[in-house]
Simulated scan of single mutants.
Amino acid sequence: MSKIRFVASDGLPGLAASLAKGGRRVLVPVEKPAASKPSVVFAPYEPGVKMTLAKATVPPKEAVLPECETLMTFQKSRDPADLNQTTLALTAVEEGVPTVVFACRPCDARGFAALDKPFLEGLYADPYYKARREKLTVASLTCATGCETCFCHWVGGGPTSPIGSDVLITEIEGGYVLQAMTPKGEELLEASGLPDGADKFPLAEAARKAAWASLVPAPDLTAARESLKAMFEDTAFWEAETARCLSCGACTYFCPTCYCFNITDEGEPQSPCGGRRLRSWDNCMSSLYTREASGHNPRPEKYQRMRNRVSHKFWTYPENWGPYLCSGCGRCITNCPVCLDIRAIVLDAVAAAKGKV
C-alpha cells in the first residue's frame, strides 16, 4: 500500500503552513471578495491567509503556465571600435520554484496531465514549462459528491481520480486521509510529520465509493471523435450550436486544459533597458486569434472558432494523445454568460452524425 497519513479536521491550514517552510511555494485556494459574487483563486500561502476548501473558480494552471511570463531578455550593443558591428545578447529565463498546489480538485490535477502531453511529450519539450512542472507537487482534495455542471466521469476522470495527483486527500469523519500516489507524494508525506493513517484508509475508500455512487451515469462518448469529424463541414449545425456565443473567451480562460498562447516582444533592444519576449495566455474564441499579418483570417466566424475549440478537445487532441483535452470540471459552463454547454454540443454532434458516420 502507498504511504498513508492522517490529519485532523482543523489541520489542513497547519499542514499548508509547514509545507511552505524552506522556500517552497504553496498555492492554496482562498476566497476573494467581489461586487457580484466572491471567487476562489489559488494564491501563495502566507501567515494569516485564510484558505478555503471550496472548489476554485479558476484552476491552478498558472503554477506551470503563467498568464504572462518572460521567456527571454535581449539587448543590442555596438562595438566601440566599429560602430557598424552590433551584438545581440539573449538571456533565457527559466524559472522553477519548488511548488505545491494544495487542495485543488481531481479535475484540476488532470488538467496538469493533459498539459504535459503537448509541452513535454511532443517533438520538443518546452523548457519553461518543464522547469516548473518538475518542481511541482499536486495534492488534490477528492470530491464528496458530483454536481450539476461537473462531468469528469464523462471524459475518463472522476471525483476521486488519481490522474495528475501526487497526493489524494479524502475527507472522513474527524479529519482527512492523505494517500501518496507518486514518489513525489511519498516524499511530501514523509516530510509532513503527520501520523500514519493506514488504519483509517478503509473509511477513505468508503467515502470515495459514495462519491462515485452520487454521480448520474455518463453517456457513451466513444463515437464523439468520429462524429465531430463527420460534422466538421456542416456549417448549419455549428451556426445553430453557437448562435448565442459572444466570443468572450470565458470558456478558455477558466479551462484547466486550454493552452493557447501568444508571443510578443516589448521594449527597445538598443535602449539601456533592452527588451523582453513574453508568452501570454490567448483566446482561440477571439476573432483576432487567427488573423494573419496580411489581414486574412481563416476563422473569421464565431461558429468556426467554436468548432475548432470543441473539435480540438474531443477529436484532434485525442487523435494525437489519447485522452480528451477536457477534465470535465464544468467551469466553461458555469462561467459562460449565455449558458452554452459543451456537453450538449458534443452530444448533439454525436446524434446528428449517426446518419453520416
Rank of each mutant, 00 (worst) to 15 (best):
S192Q: 02
G156I: 07
L188D: 04
R244D: 14
E171Q: 15
S165H: 10
W154G: 01
A218Y: 03
S140H: 06
G249M: 11
V216G: 03
L215P: 03
R225D: 13
R208C: 09
E239A: 08
T142W: 05
A224I: 11
T142K: 03
W238A: 11
P195C: 09
F119V: 09
E173H: 02
F254G: 00
E148G: 07
A191K: 15
F119P: 00
D199R: 15
D199N: 13
Y128G: 01
P127K: 02
T182G: 03
E186F: 10
V167K: 05
G175P: 05
P159T: 04
C150H: 00
L120V: 04
T149N: 12
A230D: 10
C147L: 03
R132A: 07
P202R: 11
K184N: 10
Y253M: 13
S192C: 06
E148R: 09
E148F: 14
D166K: 09
I163M: 05
F201R: 15
G175K: 11
D166G: 03
L246Y: 14
L221E: 04
G249C: 12
A250N: 14
R208E: 11
P217M: 13
E187T: 15
M231W: 03
L141D: 01
A139Y: 12
C143K: 04
L228P: 08
P256K: 06
A198P: 04
R244N: 11
C245G: 05
A230G: 07
P219D: 10
F151K: 00
T160I: 00
E241H: 01
A250Q: 07
T235G: 01
G146A: 08
L141M: 15
E205A: 10
T257Q: 09
A144T: 12
C258K: 07
F232E: 15
K135F: 07
L189E: 04
E226H: 14
L194Y: 03
I169G: 03
V216W: 00
V177L: 04
P219A: 08
G158Y: 01
